[in-house]
């Protein structure tokens, strides 16, 4: 699932990831929608922008951990938020400019639950 307030970015990112074999099952434009969609859609992975219009993606990541079937969260941003990963239970951080299937795959490989299911 993709969470970013910029529709153009979500569109390009979806096409980029899907071209690399990922399936994007949903999108959200703000933190509240992201938490709700994570509960409803039960994605395996949520690419979560840190700076969202209604709050911090870091806070949203903590809430997403509490959904019934918590997904792996990877933070994305144009700024450097690598430091925020540990505090919210995210799996990793990818600068938006470097987003690609390979980069996402590398971030997820550290999770043993996903390692075998990665495209």
């Amino acid at each position: 699932m993709l969470v970013d307030d910029q529709a153009a970015f979500r569109t390009v990112a979806r096409r980029l990831l899907e071209s690399d074999g990922f399936l994007v099952i949903g999108e959200a434009a703000d933190a509240r929608s992201a938490v709700r969609a994570a509960g409803e859609l039960a994605p395996d992975v949520v690419l979560l922008d840190v700076r969202l219009p209604d709050g911090s993606g870091v806070d949203a990541a903590r809430l997403i951990r509490d959904v019934e079937r918590p997904p792996v969260v990877v933070l994305i941003s144009t700024a450097d938020y690598a430091h925020a990963v540990n505090g919210c239970g995210a799996q990793g951080f990818i600068p938006k400019g470097q987003l690609s299937g390979a980069r996402l795959r590398a971030a997820l490989e550290a999770d043993p639950a996903l390692g075998s299911d990665l495209p």
Binding site: Q6, F9, A13, K96, G97
Partner: peptide, 9 residues
């Protein structure tokens, strides 16, 4: 930044 990143992608 956001637009340039999107263009880059």
């Amino acid at each position: 930044q956001q637009r340039l990143v999107t263009i880059g992608l």
